[in-house]
């Protein structure tokens, strides 16, 4: 092993580790002898079993956040463990809302840099070299930290395939945080779940995304209908999210979700670098766009040059008629 110890911020949803968490743990196991995790919540002690299956030998229990947003407390718990215990060689965070907040807070607290948007890691002695997709995934830039530990990485979803290890015993230790004062002032008053039918965007085997080329907002329904016919999830380019056609949670790309479905259908999307970085890893790509020079046609396996708002209804009809 090239590194001694790696910490992972383990995030849970409905008492299950998020897929991104399992990806990070799997990666950590390939680089370090010892993998330890931090988690918050009411019953963190119950998470030891599943984390043990993924090679975690020690779980730091931050405890209930009592309504606080996680960032400040996660960063404080890690900083405290570094000063009272021993620093890890690297710390992995997922590119999630709370992962980014926590990494940013920790970086500023420790005054060490953070490398974000990592899509692959390669060990080089006790250092990790991080790969990033830049210019829409056309180039791969590799970077590393100039100075030693802890090397903080924020890793994009689907960069590693999750794989359980032989079950190991996971010790749980308390990492509760004392009063943080003003930085911890933001409190969650209530949580709202927006109902979405069908598979989740970042887990769906088929994703159909719409862009500006649809022409007008109500035509996004065509994207939703096609996605539903293919048992897939609807997505969107940044352009129509910025224009308010669909919520931010639909966005695929650099600033949105990374998807790697079996089939990705880009409807009226030109393929700006911002979008490509989030979908270029899809197994099969279909593009429908009226501009035959659009960059999306350079990455697609099957493309039709034409007006998406006319082609998609015909496609829906043809699929229904089968």
């Amino acid at each position: 092993m090239s590194l001694g110890k790696i910490w992972v911020l383990a995030e849970f949803a409905d008492a299950k580790p998020t897929t991104a968490t399992l990806e990070l743990l799997t990666a950590a196991n390939t680089f370090a002898d010892k993998v330890e995790a931090f988690a918050w919540g009411e019953g963190v002690v119950n998470y030891a079993g599943v984390l043990g299956d993924y090679g975690v030998s020690k779980l730091y229990d931050i405890g209930s956040l009592a309504g606080s947003l996680p960032g400040p407390k996660v960063a404080a718990a890690m900083a405290e463990a570094i000063s009272s215990d021993s620093a890890p060689d690297a710390i992995f965070f997922a590119t999630s809302y709370d992962g980014r907040d926590s990494a940013a807070r920790l970086s500023a607290r420790l005054s060490v840099g953070v490398i974000t948007n990592v899509v692959n890691l390669v060990a080089n002695g006790s250092e990790l070299n991080a790969e990033h997709a830049i210019f829409g995934g056309e180039m791969i830039l590799t970077s590393k930290f100039a100075a030693a530990a802890p090397q903080i990485f924020v890793i994009r979803a689907k960069s590693f395939a999750p794989e359980a290890k032989e079950a190991a015993n996971c010790e749980v230790v308390s990492a509760s945080v004392s009063d943080l004062g003003s930085t911890d002032g933001a409190k969650i008053v209530s949580s709202h779940v927006e109902e979405r039918s069908g598979p989740k965007l970042d887990e769906a085997p088929v994703v159909v995304s719409g862009g500006r080329g649809l022409g007008q907002p109500d035509r996004y329904q065509l994207v939703e209908e096609l996605a539903s016919l293919l048992n897939g999830a609807p997505g969107a380019s940044r352009a129509i999210v910025d224009a308010g056609w669909v919520p931010y949670s639909y966005q695929v790309g650099q600033t949105g979700k990374t998807v790697k479905p079996n089939l990705y259908i880009a409807v009226g999307i030109s393929g700006a670098t911002q979008h490509m970085v989030g979908m270029k890893g899809s197994k099969n790509i279909v593009a429908i766009n009226k501009d035959k020079e659009a960059p999306i046609f350079q990455v697609c396996d099957f493309g039709i040059v034409g007006d998406a708002s006319k082609i998609v209804p015909k496609l829906i009809e043809a699929i229904k008629a089968r």
Binding site: G113, E138, I140, F145, A146, F297, Q298, V299, I304, G306
Partner: peptide, 20 residues
């Protein structure tokens, strides 16, 4: 941080493009 290297990503094979 330091940049170690920059390289071209593996390009996807060109696909079939047809007119509507």
């Amino acid at each position: 941080q330091q940049v170690v290297s920059v390289r071209k990503a593996e390009a996807r094979q060109a696909g079939t493009i047809i007119e509507d």
